[in-house]
């Protein structure tokens, strides 16, 4: 039969007698060979070879059986089932070994060591918890204080704006009146303007501007008696336009009362007109001046 086969098969076939030599007289097994061979003609020799080897190995010693079972791989049902079971075994083995070696540090430890380690861990957890709560308190405190600082800054800004209106460093707007004094005869003196300012202040004026000059606490009037009137050293010329922010219902009567500013001016042949407005813009500014001597005593 082997002679009919392809030349490639001859080489493996030639090895077979050597392997079968120990069997010696095992004639029935040899007879099986030809009977089986016709079937797997198309197959390669290595696959076919084990069959006779296995069949011949029956009376063999255990060592030879082992060798025969090991080397030429066969895809028999038994092999596959055993392989599947061994696969499961290997899987379980590997998983177990891995999960055991994961925590190998504590595995061999004695019980009292484990208790000590546990105590230490508890202590450490306690310490860390304490530290955590302390840091959280600190953080809350800082959050709080930064909130307070922000609030203080906001209030300071608000105050700065309010004081800026009084000091004339920021523009202001609001309801108020416009007082226009037309001085055709040149009879208006600075003290009359000062009277008007005083009257307006007494009536609650909050921001005053004469022509282009902001009137503040230390404003002064000079001139008159022929020379041009100056406010804070800035010449102002008629008509004098007072822009005043305040309550119009208070400001207007204050100017118009009998013997008041308006009547006095009209006696001097000057005309004074008062006009209420819902929106007066006082936009003349003064530079903020640092006092030379006075210092805040609140610090």
């Amino acid at each position: 039969m082997s002679n009919d086969e392809t030349p490639q098969n001859d080489i493996p076939e030639s090895g077979r007698p050597r392997r079968e030599e120990p069997l010696g007289k095992d004639e029935p097994m040899r007879k099986e060979e030809p009977a089986r061979e016709p079937e797997p003609v198309g197959e390669t020799a290595p696959v076919r070879e084990p069959e006779p080897a296995e069949a011949a190995a029956a009376p063999l010693t255990g060592r030879q059986r082992l060798a025969a079972g090991l080397w030429p791989p066969r895809f028999s049902r038994a092999q596959l089932i055993v392989a599947l079971l061994l696969f499961v075994l290997g899987l379980g083995l590997a998983i177990q070994v891995r999960s055991t070696s994961d925590s190998s540090a504590l595995r061999g430890a004695r019980q009292e060591d484990l208790v000590r380690i546990l105590d230490e861990l508890d202590d450490r957890t306690q310490r860390l918890e304490d530290e955590k709560s302390r840091l959280e308190d600190q953080r809350a405190e800082l959050d709080n204080s930064s909130d307070q600082a922000e609030e203080a800054r906001k209030q300071t800004r608000e105050k700065e704006r309010q004081l800026g209106i009084l000091a004339g460093t920021v523009a202001a707007q609001g309801p108020g009146i416009t007082l226009t004094i037309a001085d055709g005869a040149g009879a208006v003196e600075s003290d009359m303007l000062l009277d008007a300012i005083q009257e307006l202040r007494a009536a609650g004026a909050e921001a005053i501007q004469v022509n282009d000059v902001r009137v503040v606490a230390d404003s002064y009037f000079s001139g008159g008696d022929g020379s041009p009137i100056e406010v804070d050293g800035t010449k102002v010329s008629p008509p004098y336009v007072f822009k005043v922010i305040g309550k119009p219902e208070d400001l207007e009567p204050a100017l118009n009362i009998p013997g008041g500013v308006v009547q006095t001016l009209e006696k001097e042949q000057a005309t004074a007109t008062v006009r209420r407005s819902d929106k007066i813009v006082v936009d003349a500014l003064r530079p903020a001046e640092r006092p030379d001597y006075a210092r805040s005593s609140s610090q």
Binding site: L70, P73, R74, Q79, V82, A83, L86, V88, G90, L93
Partner: peptide, 12 residues
């Protein structure tokens, strides 16, 4: 042989 391979593959 296949059985041994199965064991090895399982471990791997």
């Amino acid at each position: 042989m296949i059985a041994v391979l199965g064991l090895v593959v399982g471990v791997v």
